[in-house]
Amino acid sequence: MRKTGNAVALTGMALALAAVPNASYAQSSVTLYGIIDAGVTYVSNAGGSHQVKFDDGIAQANRWGLKGTEDLGGGMKAVFELESGFHLGNGQIANGGSLFGRAAYVGLQNDWGTLTLGNQPDMTQEFVYLYNASAWASGYAINQGDFDRMNGDHLQNSVKFMSNTFGGFQFGGMYSFSNKAGDFHNGSAWSVGAQYQHGPFAMGTAYTQFNNPSGIYGFDPYAMIGVRTFFGRPTVSVDPATGTVTSLYADTPFPVDKQATFGAGASYAIGNVTLMGAFTYTQITAFGESRHMQVGEGGANWQMTPSFSMTGGYQYTHFDGHHWNQLSAGMHYLLSKRTDVYLSGDWLRASQGVDAVIGYGFTPASTTTQADVRIGLRHLF
């Protein structure tokens, strides 16, 4: 999962602002923050073989960012955030190579809420994905193919409003422009959602629709969920001599007309144990036909001591006559308030004829099962 990290003040920014003539920054603040995660993962079957690999940004995506506010008076503030994802193993930029691919927006905030413009998290991320117990247990255990956008996804070129919280209730909505001349619809998206929190109980719901997803949002059905046909069309080619499987949509996405997902989740804390669950219903439309994915999941987090916690979850997925059953578990030990070590694992079984792939994270297996075990280190700043 990709949760928000702790932050520390960027004091050096004050020196830079001092060089700007006539700037008023007495009521302004800028913060630097980030997350660094790395570890070693064992995969039981990746394309027919065991795999041991260095992997990073799994418990949470690696990132660094800047965010700030300026008091404009009269209860109004200007706000901004720039957030960049990266791969620790090779130093490359993540999120399709965009410098601030995780977030880049500016906006205004008052007593009613916040209006922002730019590249921003959708409402599924804001209100539902925190109830994804499996992904809390293991960063690999996102829902199958991320069809339901429960991996913490963003919408580019968007205008977004998030209300403040009133009596435990909060809501929001956004629209993402296609920015294509003569085609307002193709590549556009919109998202709405709400949440309610009261004492130990919390719940949230959201609906997100993407029209003709492409680019980093494009579909590669075999890599995403391990199916060899999608909407009745083949998704792979198989070398008759070696049996090597090659995805037909690794470079050019499968032409999807619409991706629309509804999600709802809830959690309840009982002492040191938090129970959580979620359900998502996603409609994929292509070639004038629709297919539907349903995902139901549940699990719990047990904060055994202030430093040690355990999380476990079960996830069931049904799509186009296929089904997937997945178990996930994880343990985290805090070395400090900002640094922890963890151990996590997943086991997935898919229906006959599907090559199992956990969370769009590995090469699909050559069988209907796949498992992973990971040990990692995470630091927040």
Score class of each variant (00 low, 15 high):
F201P: 06
Q197R: 15
A7C: 04
A329G: 10
R378V: 07
L82A: 13
T274F: 03
F169C: 14
D148I: 00
Q144Y: 02
E289K: 11
H322Y: 13
T246F: 11
T367N: 13
N212E: 15
F80G: 06
G193C: 06
L10Y: 11
R374T: 08
P221D: 10
P253R: 13
S49M: 09
M310A: 12
P234F: 07
G345D: 08
G12E: 05
G173W: 02
A9H: 11
D153Q: 05
L72I: 10
Q259M: 14
A269V: 06
S344C: 12
Y360D: 12
I225R: 00
T242I: 09
T311I: 10
D55C: 06
G85V: 02
P213E: 10
G199N: 14
A78I: 04
M203G: 04
S290I: 04
Y281N: 11
W302I: 09
T69D: 00
G226E: 06
S29W: 00
H332G: 03
T242V: 11
R349M: 14
D355H: 04
G48H: 08
P213K: 13
D148Y: 00
D346W: 05
Q259K: 14
P121K: 04
G313C: 06
N272S: 15
K77N: 15
L248R: 11
I142K: 01
